[in-house]
Amino acid sequence: MDLPRIFTIREGDHRIHNPMTARKLAVLGEALRLAPGSRMLDLASGSGEMLCTWARDHGITGTGVDISTVFTEQARARATELGVADRVEFVHGDAVGHVTDPPVDIAACIGATWIGNGVAGTVELLDRSLRPGGLMLIGEPYWRRTPPDEQTAKDSHATAIADFAPLPELIGRFQQLGYDVVEMVLADQDSWDRYAAAQWLSMRRWLDRNPDDELAPRVRDELTTEPARYAASTREWTAPGLHHGHPAVDHLDL
Rank of each mutant, 00 (worst) to 15 (best):
D2A: 07
G59N: 06
M50S: 05
G83M: 11
D42T: 06
V99P: 06
A160K: 01
D212V: 11
Q189Y: 04
R128W: 12
I161W: 11
G116R: 02
E236N: 07
Y179K: 07
R15K: 11
V219S: 06
D66I: 00
A95M: 09
E214A: 09
S156L: 14
P168D: 13
I106R: 05
A85D: 06
T238D: 04
P103V: 07
V99D: 08
L34S: 01
D213M: 06
G118Y: 08
G46I: 11
I171D: 14
R220N: 03
S45T: 00
V182C: 05
R173D: 10
E150T: 12
E236F: 01
G139V: 06
V96Y: 15
R194T: 00
C109N: 05
G97A: 10
G245F: 12
R235K: 12
E150Q: 05
V96L: 10
E150V: 09
L130K: 04
T63I: 06
W200I: 05
H17T: 10
P227V: 02
H17Q: 14
A239Y: 14
R15N: 01
D208M: 09
H14W: 01
W143E: 04
P240F: 15
G59E: 05
L126M: 03
A108F: 08
L167F: 15
A35S: 07
L34I: 11
A232I: 06
Y179T: 03
A165N: 03
A160Y: 06
T234L: 15
L135T: 03
H157C: 09
G172M: 06
A75C: 10
